[in-house]
Computed example of a mutant assay.
Amino acid sequence: MNADDARDLAALISAVGTDQLGQALDRALRQRVDFDMSCVYLFRFNHPALLVHNGYNRSVPERTLAAYQRGGYLLDPFYVACINDHPGGLWRMSELAPDCFFSSGFSISPDIHPCVSSEHGTLVEEIGFIVPLQPRVALVYSLMRNLGDGPFSTEEMQTLEALTPVVHALLELHGRVRHGDSFAYAETSDARSEDAFMDILQGQLTEAQRYIAKLILQGHSSASIAALLGISEGTVKVHKHNIYQRLEISNNADLFRLFIDYLTRLA
């Protein structure tokens, strides 16, 4: 470790437990990898997403951030990974996303997805450090880049992966020091769907239907849902038909519109 590295590490350690940690991490990583935006979220099952660090550089409207925190996060592959106790480490969003995610309503909506609402549109790659804190609770530190500058290269990912133990240790300590009260009593049940889906889907669905609607919204195809639940695609299609009837809609696009309309109306 040279003198510069020692100073950077000292600055990072000093920022733990303060509002400055996100900025300190950004400064340290930008010396090694270029990125346009960043954020840190605390994700907890059945609790609203908590924005710990806003590094969007004013590229994202407050209304969009409000809609995301009100419920848009429920469809975010990083949130889904965290509440399913995905292994920690550095991940590309594309590695976590369901098979139809990048054509889903969430992925392409400028109203609830911060990356899409940025000036770069959908041409933003997101990678993130997942830092588990306890079952179904984790911090995620995301870095985003305009794909006009090219995606994060293999070499850049290797550089960041080498720093993962340091980033993980800093964020884990920060989470426990600064936000421990926010997850000390986090939901520990084996429930599959969050209460927010009951409100968003108007409370008109059975538990099984609500879970399938959740998977549709998160970007799963019928084949993916069938594989996850161990049922046939035909059974999934029957469930989807019944969901549409109960919600008085016609297709997946209407389901996404119902979800987005709910969030943006209340944001």
Rank of each mutant, 00 (worst) to 15 (best):
A6W: 01
A11Y: 10
A15G: 04
Q20G: 08
A24I: 04
L25T: 00
A28W: 05
Q31H: 09
R32Y: 04
D36S: 12
N54S: 04
G55L: 00
Y56G: 09
N57T: 07
R63F: 02
R70G: 06
R70D: 03
G71P: 02
D76L: 02
E95G: 10
I112A: 03
I112N: 08
C115G: 14
C115R: 05
S117H: 01
L123H: 12
I130E: 02
A138Q: 08
S142H: 00
L143C: 05
M144Q: 13
M157T: 05
L160R: 01
P165D: 04
H174F: 09
V177T: 01
R178Y: 06
H179M: 09
S182G: 01
F183V: 07
A186P: 02
E187G: 02
S189H: 05
S189T: 15
D190N: 15
M198F: 13
M198S: 15
E207R: 15
R210T: 14
Q218S: 14
S221A: 13
A223V: 14
L229S: 01
L229Q: 06
S232M: 03
T235F: 15
H241Q: 12
H241C: 02
N242D: 08
A253N: 11
D261W: 11
D261Q: 14
T264C: 12
T264R: 13
